[in-house]
Amino acid sequence: MHADAEKIEAFFSDTKAWPTELRALRAILLDCGLAEEFKWRGPCYTYDGGNVAIIWGFKENAALGFFRGVLLKDPEGLLVAPGDNSRAVRMFKFTGLDQITAIETTIRDYVREAIELEKAGAKVDLPKDDIVYPEELLAALEEDPELQEAFEALTPGRKRGYALHFAQPKQSATRVSRIEKSRDRILAGKGLQER
C-alpha cells in the first residue's frame, strides 16, 4: 500500500469527529474524478496534481473546503470563509449526513466547477499583503540576520500566517515568546501549522 494510502486509511479509521459525514464527502469527491493525497494531516483532493478540495472534521462540524472557493459562483450563497483572514478558501459546513445528502447534486456541481478552474489554471488575485508586521517581529528580524533571511524566503501565505499569529496577543512579551517559539520552524521553511 502506498504511504499516502496508509495515512488516509488511518485518518478515516481513527477520526472521531464526523466520521460518517467525512466518508460521504470523500465518496463524492472520488466519484467526481479527484485523486486523494495526504497533505496537512488529512486527505486532500487534487486534479492533475493541483489542489482542488480538502475535508476537515472540526469539533462543531464537518467541512468541505475549496482552495479557490472565492472563484466559485456560489449562486445559493452556501460557502463560507473558514476564518476572518481567509482570502481564497471557502467551504461548506455540515452537522449531519442528511445535510450532505440534501445538497449532494449541488456539492457535485461545485466540485466540477472547481475542477474546471484547476484545468483553466485559474488563480485567486490576492492583493499585495496588507498585513502589518508587529514591532516585535521587525525587531527580531533586524537582530537576527539568519531569521530574516529565512522569513523572507517563506511563501507569502506562510509569512501572512506568522504575522497574524505574532500580532494576535495583546502583551508584547507574549508576541516575543511566540516569535522565539517559531524560530526553528521558520528556519526550516515551514508554515505555522506544518510539522
Rank of each mutant, 00 (worst) to 15 (best):
G57S: 00
G49I: 11
K170E: 10
F151D: 00
V176D: 05
D48I: 07
R195G: 08
L30T: 14
E37W: 00
T101Y: 04
G42H: 03
S13I: 00
D14S: 15
G96L: 09
T174G: 03
A63Y: 02
A114T: 02
G50I: 07
K159T: 00
V132T: 15
S13C: 08
L79W: 09
A167S: 15
F12Y: 15
R160M: 08
Q99F: 12
G49S: 05
L164D: 05
K119L: 09
R183F: 02
R108T: 03
Y133G: 04
L22N: 12
L30D: 02
G77H: 01
R178K: 14
A53I: 00
T46W: 01
F92Y: 15
I131Q: 08
P43C: 02
L141C: 03
I55P: 07
L141A: 01
Q148W: 01
P75I: 06
F166L: 03
E6F: 05
E9F: 06
G83V: 00
M91Y: 04
Y45H: 12
G96C: 06
A88Q: 13
R41F: 06
K73Y: 00
G191R: 07
V132M: 09
F94E: 14
R112T: 14
G65Q: 02
S177P: 01
E135P: 06
K119V: 11
K73R: 12
D144E: 05
L79G: 09
K159S: 01
S182I: 03
I131H: 05
D129R: 11
Y162K: 00
A163G: 14
I55W: 04
F92L: 07
V111T: 06
T20L: 09
G33A: 00
V176A: 04
A24R: 15
E60Q: 15
D74L: 05
A150W: 09
V111N: 02
G161S: 13
F66A: 02
L30N: 11
V52Q: 08
D129L: 12
A167F: 05
H2E: 14
A139K: 13
P75K: 07
K39G: 02
L22W: 04
Q99H: 10
K16M: 11
G161E: 02
L25K: 04
C32H: 01
M1W: 10
I55L: 13
L192I: 13
T95M: 03
Y47P: 08
T106Q: 12
